[in-house]
């Protein structure tokens, strides 16, 4: 026996209301589905073709491959310049990715958390490298270094990459900070946390997915870059994409298909890791669309 006020406790089942988007009544094969499948094939074609042709036994690249062997993979260690370049790429990507994450997060914090004169201009400024063609940045940096008397070292490459990676971090971290419920911070302060404790214990953990996504994007962007690295690489520090680029410009024997295949496999592994940890759509979907 009790006094019921307004609503009776309804059935606890929720979320079974009709699905939002009206879907086609008929399933199965549609013209749209067939067209989409062809486009997906187009998207995957070059990647699959490189992978398959790397197993050729012949001395030249062809598709379909002639014969089946791993000889060109065994050839890779005999060409230390590729291995060396891979190391350079990894180091540059890690260092510039880490630096960009710190610098970009600082900028995002200022841009999202404060209202100050010049904020909009700064925001545009920090995102503007995305609109500048990579080649132009590369030429500009090379000329600038030469004029300032800075010699080419792996660090000149790292600095060059900061310009193209920081914008992504600023963007992704800003988005994640902007989506953060401000009252959580107020609640923390209300419970006696200092601003630093609030940042450390509330803001940072909540923004962590955005920061990690920014770091991942920055690292990948640095690793894959050619336009800037082509100009800034010194003979002793050539990144792998640049090495492949200059190699292909002269010849494309199956050795380079094997090297490219290794890169594809690394990317595939990355897809799995990022998808499992952050969600690929989160890293790319949110940002890449607005690039």
């Amino acid at each position: 026996m009790s006094v019921a006020t307004t609503a009776a406790p309804g059935p606890a089942v929720g979320g079974h209301e009709p699905a939002a988007v009206p879907r086609p009544a008929r399933r199965g094969v549609t013209a749209l589905g067939v067209f989409s499948a062809l486009v997906y094939a187009f998207v995957l074609a070059p990647i699959v073709v490189v992978l398959l042709s790397s197993f050729t036994a012949a001395d030249y690249t062809s598709f379909p491959p002639r014969g089946l062997s791993l000889r060109w993979y065994l050839e890779i260690p005999r060409n230390p310049e590729f291995v060396e370049s891979f190391k350079v790429s990894v180091v540059v990507a890690l260092v510039s990715g880490a630096l960009a994450t710190v610098l970009g997060t600082l900028a995002a914090l200022a841009l999202v958390r404060f209202r100050f004169r010049g904020r909009d201009a700064l925001n545009t400024f920090f995102l503007s490298p995305l609109m500048i063609p990579g080649v132009i940045l590369g030429i500009a940096l090379l000329q600038f270094y030469a004029r300032a008397g800075i010699t080419k070292t792996p660090f000149s490459l790292v600095f060059g990459h900061l310009v193209i990676t920081i914008p992504y971090v600023v963007r992704l971290v800003s988005a994640s900070l902007a989506g953060l419920d401000r009252t959580l911070e107020l609640a923390a302060m209300n419970l006696g946390a200092t601003p630093w404790q609030t940042f450390r214990r509330v803001t940072l953990p909540l923004a962590a997915p955005g920061i990690l996504a920014g770091a991942a994007f920055a690292g990948i962007t640095s690793f894959d870059d050619v336009s800037i690295a082509l100009f800034l690489a010194s003979p002793h520090s050539v990144t792998l994409p640049v090495r492949i680029f200059t190699y292909i410009e002269q010849t494309f024997d199956p050795l380079v298909t094997a090297v490219c295949s290794v890169l594809i496999l690394i990317a595939a592994a990355l897809v799995v890791v990022i998808e499992r940890s952050l969600g690929l759509a989160r890293v790319f979907g949110s940002d890449a669309a607005g690039r």
Binding site: P9, G10, P11, G14, P18
Partner: peptide, 18 residues
């Protein structure tokens, strides 16, 4: 009815969305 009682589903069936 309360949420989840099927009232919106009923309306959507009359309209032909379901």
């Amino acid at each position: 009815g309360p949420s989840g009682c099927g009232k919106t589903t009923t309306l959507n069936m009359i309209a032909g969305f379901l």
